[in-house]
């Protein structure tokens, strides 16, 4: 369970630098509820692994996490999480809601007086990636529990010659409790700048819509209606010289797909689009189960192990 003391603001900073043929963190600092861990690697290359975690394994409403990550020239960073990022609706938000009692001036409270929105859990990460550096951001998916609200903002500043593989994925919720797309709001924005120019801005916004009174003859269109039958969605952004081989191999696999009339949705679907003005690509995946997406990603991104070594790559998608 997450901590019980209410919303928290955590900050962190990770600075990776090359020294000799090794990469080491010249800074690795964090504060509650954020935690950063870097296992000592047995790598003989300038490659480092770091885990981003939250105390108690989850974030509650109102929690804010801010992290700066600096991937120095010539280094590679594999940034992971340990298990999915669980977003809870705080129990306390029920107490924080003002009771619907008459206000001091004796007027009856209007519905606007009642705070109906859950305080969002926010996570902001700023990445700077230097020339000849590689960021592999391969976390576990975000899982938003019933009535939770999550907002994630990630900005990637790539200098010329820098590379990144950025994975951002989410599941339909706590399936063991029968939750399917029952959260209130999920927003995830990823902005990629290459040499100061914005080349990608991907904003995913999923909101449970209130039933519209003017559409009484139609049932409300829920998130589950719109996103089903799939229970897990992933977006992968690829950019830079070091991921060109991976882009080429994915493109080859993608172009070999031929879709004939299906009688029911495929268990897993993926799409790929190349950028036109710079050497990057966007891959999106959806599947009936989270593990299907995980397996697909592990196999499809296997080429990344050539860049960081099998020992490092096998830490991802476990």
């Amino acid at each position: 369970m997450p901590h019980a003391t209410g919303p928290a603001r955590g900050k962190g900073r990770a600075v990776l630098r090359k020294s000799g043929n090794e990469a080491s963190f010249s800074e690795l600092s964090y504060s509650y509820p954020l935690k950063l861990l870097s296992p000592q690697g047995a790598s003989d290359a300038p490659v480092a692994i770091a885990y981003m975690m939250s105390y108690g394994g989850g974030l509650v409403s109102g929690d804010q996490v801010e992290l700066d990550v600096d991937v120095g020239a010539g280094t590679s960073l594999l940034l992971l999480t340990q298990g999915s990022t669980k977003v809870f609706k705080s129990r306390q938000s029920a107490y924080l809601t003002p009771p619907l009692s008459p206000t001091l001036d004796g007027k009856a409270p209007s519905p606007e007086d009642k705070e109906t929105r859950t305080a969002a859990t926010t996570q902001k990460i700023n990445f700077t990636i230097s020339p000849d550096a590689l960021l592999l951001l391969l976390p576990d998916p975000v899982t938003c529990f019933r009535d939770s609200s999550y907002s994630q903002l990630q900005t990637f500043h790539l200098e010329p010659g820098a590379s990144a593989a950025i994975l951002d994925w989410f599941t339909s919720g706590r399936m063991s409790r029968g939750e399917q797309w029952d959260f209130e709001r999920y927003r995830s924005a990823n902005e990629v700048f290459l040499d100061g120019k914005r080349i990608m801005r991907d904003v995913m916004l999923l909101e449970s819509a209130p039933p519209d009174a003017s559409l009484l003859f139609l049932p409300p269109r829920t998130l589950k209606d719109r996103l089903g039958p799939y229970a897990c969605y992933a977006t992968l952004l690829l950019v830079g010289p070091k991921v060109q081989d991976l882009i080429a191999s994915l493109e080859k696999a993608y172009q070999s797909i031929h879709v004939f009339q299906q009688s029911e949705p495929l268990p897993l679907v993926w799409s790929m689009s190349a950028l036109e003005e710079s050497s990057g690509a966007v891959v999106r995946v959806a599947a009936l189960e989270t593990d299907m997406v995980r397996t697909w990603l592990r196999q499809s991104l296997q080429g990344l192990s050539d860049l960081v070594g099998d020992f490092v790559y096998e830490k991802a998608f476990v």
Binding site: R187, V203, M204, R226, V269, W270, S271, S273, V285, A286
Partner: peptide, 14 residues
């Protein structure tokens, strides 16, 4: 602006 229908996005791209 935002993408609000990832399923539609994947299928349209395919």
């Amino acid at each position: 602006p935002a993408t609000t229908w990832p399923l539609g996005e994947i299928l349209a791209a395919r």
